[in-house]
Amino acid sequence: MAANPAAVMSCGACGPSCRQTLNEGVWTNNPVAVQMLGVCSALAVTSRLENSIVMGMALIFVAAMSNLFVSLLRNATPRRIRMIAEVTIIATFVIVFDQLLKAFYPEMSESLGPYVGLIITNCIIMGRAEAFAMQNPPAISVVDGIANGIGYAAVLILIGAAREVLGSGELLGRTVLSPDWYTGNLVMILAPGAFIALGFLIALANHIKPPQTEASK
């Protein structure tokens, strides 16, 4: 299995297996906690668990679809304009998701504000399109997009749950820590709480699996 990093890398060239791709995106190379990509929205939308879930779904959808189309068009795209082509494809799917959200779930659209649109500049999607979909066939690219989307969503859900529970004692709007003995820690809902929660999450990930040193990368 994907125990040693060199083996994973060499498999990248000869067409990685589905399982490895999933494992990399969700855990060993988690986009937020390990690669520090897409941090902006991971901080901004996580004040409530519900927002985190919707945002995670948005990212899974956009990453999978844009990886699919970037990969399908990879042989037809001239190298010089590939960035513009990628951005256009990504923006198209972000618009689709934004319109769906506005139509079926307007309150959520309101509460996420500009952060749905900001998926366009989310480095995860651009990074996967550039690093993976440009070199690999469509099917595995979709798996890669979904894997990275799940990795991102998992981090968001963890932070969202921690912030909502610590901040207001509620989870998805239901009281879990009774207000009789627990006073909501307002700072967790406000901006500083987001930074601190993500900092501790990254430290926890480092503690479980110490980061690779520069030499072994």
Binding site: P192, F195, F200
Partner: peptide
């Protein structure tokens, strides 16, 4: 991690 906490 520490940068995040300091930013907080």
């Amino acid at each position: 991690a520490i940068i995040m906490v300091v930013t907080g």
